[in-house]
Design a protein around this nucleic acid. Structure first.
Lengths: 348, 348
DNA sequence: ATTTATTATGTTATCGATAACATGTTATCG
DNA sequence: CGATAACATGTTATCGATAACATAATAAAT
């Protein structure tokens, strides 16, 4: 049984009174770097300790018009990608002295977006990080509404746009790495299982597949590619379809590791030997992929780093604005890397 | 090039002035349910629309001593477990009109814990949800310090404690389900790969293994169990060890799916047939486990629900306190369920 | 017709801190 | 030694809203 115990908050006034000084002096002690005699400082600090005083960041934010809080809008937190990114965001925010005010989206209704942004601004966030994938035209509001938002906004995993800051994995380049690797392994008939092509990321990966093959003198056709929804189940289905439309394929680039797992599973069931008959390469490098059967060659994207860079960038933007300097919006890319494992590693 | 564009915030005063009423009247319009003539209401609403006024939640929180914000302390966000839980928390919070103020821990230094709690309280959170696993004595601060915290606190995945509210998966019961299933399959020599035993959850799962076997007339020994650190790599090692210390084992209960994956991998390498020679069962039911080779029988814990219940509970506590009612602290358990797949499904 | 309740609106105090300004004291310097 | 700078502290205004109280007009009740 817990009593309601509404202990009243200890305020700066209580401290001031107990120490026999003005609130301003207490404020000076709390914020350092201002003229306070050593004697007074000690006295105040003792009282602070005794009463267990902690300044209200809320009140401070109000008067200073600055909260040291970042708004974070997420989508699909239950997936490992966004949550890893969020982890990077959280770490870096902590390091730089910011807190995170989070809001998860469950859809992209435009009203909902306005509402979310308003609720963040109403809490005086210093900046907003958008951790939601670009799907279809769900970012179309950006161009028109950006300049109505009074704080810096930074987008993750968004197609670069003029005048808007963003950070993203270079999905295109990742796909290029994957295809080049397969070509180097001597594969000549490389299929692709794409993610949902309304997603910018899925589209970029597919583009990397297509263009790299073309550049190498091959002729990737539409029927050499099927589409999944990122899940293992969909990967399995897409793989079955692809086997039908591209029967003599000798390698497949799958747009993420989960779908690749579904494919591997079906390959085993059909007795297709990986990598001998069919090389498989995924994307993401989830921790489990090293233990798939066979272990999965994949493209590693550092989502943690993505989150960290996002925070770093937006804090720079906030500081620049604070000092009334202009900020140049920029789109940054993070380069993925190739991780070679058994599923492609067949030199013979 | 973005101009500094420090548009001044539209305040309630601006609206009041433009509409020719007092700020109090504007406040009444914004908050509904108070006497305002239809005519005035319309006029004010028009002005609000025109100026794009959005009330400052910050200022409101200050005067009302209530922020409609929950503090969330997390640990290990990069793992799928905590992030799924967080997803549940975020969804439910949204549904109930709360925002989340997040802080990620990177260690359990006691000072750090105080600091984190203080920073949340300084921002006037209405309650705190602790989404960090109980490891060793990292929750030992709870008993002594709980009553110094002026808002309700709710712990997730913590060993039940008298007088403190918590919600957790019933890990013990999950292990019981797993072992009973293996026994029903006719297995008689059941080993266990535990998680790090300093974790309460790992310990509970091991206890379920031990006690269920004992109750069934078997004699589980210490050498029938090895320990991993939740990762697939450690699972592989633990499996190798276990094969040595318990060579004639015919089934193994692994404390999570990732480690089970590492075990499966090694079993394949050694030509051990699963489930014929060795039945394997995991814990968690991560989405990929249905596509392992062979697909993994496992215990499903609904972490999303865990998060939702946590928010539900703490909001009830907050409301009770608001109405000055007493709150009875309670520890709640969520029951996991058995998911049967190939890795154990050998009737014969 | 007078009292009482309901409706509509304004005024002042307040939440907890800091900014901006004012004032007094002690060093420092030419 | 008087002027100026550096130090130490206090007073008042302010951030953006709501609470608490006050007032006035209208409607309903006796």
């Amino acid at each position: 049984m817990i009593s309601p115990s509404r202990r009243k908050r200890v305020t700066i006034k209580d401290v001031a009174q107990a120490a026999g000084v003005s609130t301003q002096t207490v404020s000076r002690v709390m914020n350092k770097f201002s003229y306070v005699s050593e004697e007074t400082r000690q006295r105040v600090e003792t009282v602070v300790e005794q009463l267990g005083y902690h300044p209200s960041t809320l009140a401070r934010s109000l008067i200073q018009q600055r909260s040291y809080t970042l708004g974070v809008v997420t989508f699909g937190l239950k997936y490992i990608g966004p949550s890893r990114t969020l982890n990077g965001v959280a770490d870096k925010a902590d390091e730089l002295g910011y807190m995170l005010l989070m809001k998860e989206l469950d859809n992209f209704d435009t009203n909902r977006i306005d509402e979310v942004i308003d609720s963040l601004l109403a809490r005086q966030v210093d900046g907003i990080i958008w951790v939601a994938p670009e799907i279809g035209d769900n970012h179309s509001w950006v161009e028109e509404r950006m300049d109505k938002i009074s704080v810096p906004v930074l987008f993750l995993a968004m197609r670069p746009r003029e005048g808007i800051s963003s950070v993203a994995t270079d999905n295109y380049q990742g796909a290029v790495l994957a295809i080049q690797h397969l070509l180097e392994c001597g594969r000549k008939k490389i299929g692709h299982i794409a993610g949902p092509l309304t997603w910018w990321e899925a589209d970029e990966r597919k583009r990397g597949w297509r263009e790299t093959l073309s550049a190498a003198g091959f002729n990737p056709l539409e029927e050499h590619c099927t589409e999944g929804n990122w899940s293992s189940a969909s990967g399995e289905q897409a793989f079955i379809q692809l086997l039908e439309s591209y029967p003599d394929m000798d390698a497949v680039f799958v747009a993420n590791d989960q779908m690749a797992l579904g494919g591997l599973r079906e390959a085993i069931r059909r007795g297709i030997r990986v990598p001998e008959q069919l090389a498989v390469i995924g994307f993401d490098n989830i921790p489990e992929s090293a233990y798939f059967y066979p272990s999965l060659t994949t493209i590693y994207q550092d989502l943690q780093l993505l989150g960290e860079q996002a925070v770093q960038s937006i804090v720079e933007m906030i500081q620049a604005r604070q000092e009334n300097k202009s900020v140049i919006a920029q789109s940054r890319f993070i380069q993925p890397t190739l991780v070679i494992r058994e599923s492609s590693n067949f030199a013979g």
